[in-house]
Design a protein around this nucleic acid. Structure first.
Lengths: 247, 247
DNA sequence: ACAAGTCATAATCTCGAGATTTTATCAAAT
DNA sequence: ATTTGATAAAATCTCGAGATTATGACTTGT
């Protein structure tokens, strides 16, 4: 039975080589926004971008419209598109909402997850652990980011609610953007790996209550790190014009 | 402080006469889908629709792309758009997720809401009460639907989390569609008004716990009504081709 | 010197037609 | 009789240009 968010789910998994130009541009644009190459607040003029992405203006507009779904770009009527601004207040909202939703999803997964879920989770945890002992305290890299994403996806994969997972996908992308914006400014002084271990063990032990608590603490603590840096980091990185875009 | 979902919020309130054709078509299409005039599963061929809505094919496509954000339309690569299908399983997911999120939002509103929130809520409750004593057990009408929507919006308006409200907006639209699809098949044998009274009183009394419980029961009971009718109602109404569209 | 109004520039929004892909039809072979 | 393959039709996807609207600079008046 197809579900409204199947499309989103498809987007989440490995970006199956898009067969339409719109999907292609959509994915590239999204990556550029999340990676921070397109800074928050940047005006997205279709006239300029179409020469960069080598597509027509109409195609560009459609891709931008798709990005609005993810709340990564904002459409102002008759005034074009801009990259969604960032703020500490927004980050706090994203974090709190995600912590609540993901705790709920994990509890659900623990209740409903089958052997396949456990197996996938175990694999994702193993991959993440290796990535974490390899970088050993260094700042986050792309590979770690991918492993972390897969671990969190595997955690909630056992949750039967497609809508809950859909919303979590959106929120994860948002938090990922914040994490990358402040990537080089945030030295991880806390033991992230220990937190992941606690989450994993609680999940495998089928301890709903503990898993919910731990995951909530885990997500909320990422906010504290950024908050400690102050709003300056965001203001400094954001609202910059003429961003450099990858070739 | 602008927020990604400001656009959505704007859509929610009185549809300020859209200044672009795309927004106009988007709103009309959305209304036609939610009202049930465009049945679930219907193929949305831009070539056909453009003559109905009197716009170009490209404009039509953009409006359809916007609908994908709301998960009311599904885009299949190179194979066009269709109205999102319905199923009892999907409705159960929508309902459960909304019950959880709205209970959370109401508790938050009770904690954070100010006098203005109480005043607006009181007004919305009054309006809804009048609408309910007027129809007195009859099937739901458009005016009641509008009042109900405003009541629920007023309830969560005090919740500071824009993301939570954003997700609730999406879920409400989904549930509204299901309600209208089975509108004439579902005689309200329960006392909906009593439930609304309980919610309102708990909210005004600032009783977080009770308000959360009551709203969760309230939302979940709407599922029970539809479930009692069986999947037949949805199958019967849905998956029909060549829908009739308003002039 | 400052404010308000006016006009040129630039960007967005919209359109109709052409290129590509999918879907349906139909004949032929096992 | 069923399946396979090729062909025709329909729909989607993409483009470049024209119409509409917003932005910024300039002039004018107090």
């Amino acid at each position: 039975m197809p579900h409204p968010s199947d499309l989103e789910s498809a987007r989440t998994s490995e970006a199956a080589s898009p067969r339409t130009l719109i999907q292609d541009v959509y994915q590239r644009l999204r990556a550029d926004i999340i990676s921070g190459e397109l800074k928050p607040g940047t005006r997205l003029r279709a006239e300029h971008l179409k020469s960069i992405y080598n597509v027509s203006g109409a195609t560009m507009r459609e891709a931008l419209g798709l990005l609005v779904s993810d709340a990564l770009v904002i459409a102002r009527e008759q005034r074009g598109f801009i990259v969604a601004p960032v703020s500490l207040e927004d980050l706090a909202d994203i974090t709190a909402t995600r912590a609540m939703l993901e705790a709920h999803a994990v509890r659900m997964a623990i209740r409903q997850g089958d052997d396949e879920w456990e197996a996938e989770l175990s694999g994702a945890f193993h991959r993440l652990s290796r990535a974490e002992e390899r970088r050993a305290g260094a700042t986050a890299d792309d590979y770690w980011e991918a492993c972390n994403k897969k671990f969190h996806e595997a955690l909630v994969a056992g949750c039967q609610s497609q809508w809950t997972r859909h919303f979590l996908t959106i929120l994860y992308r948002q938090s990922e953007r914040y994490r990358r914006i402040a990537r080089f400014n945030a030295p991880p002084d806390r033991d992230v790996h220990a937190e992941h271990v606690a989450i994993y063990e609680a999940a495998i032990a089928r301890d709903e209550e503990r898993a919910g608590e731990v995951i909530e603490l885990h997500i909320n603590s990422t906010l504290d790190v950024l908050r400690g840096l102050g709003e300056g980091v965001l203001a400094e990185e954001g609202y910059q014009l003429s961003p450099r875009i990858r070739a």
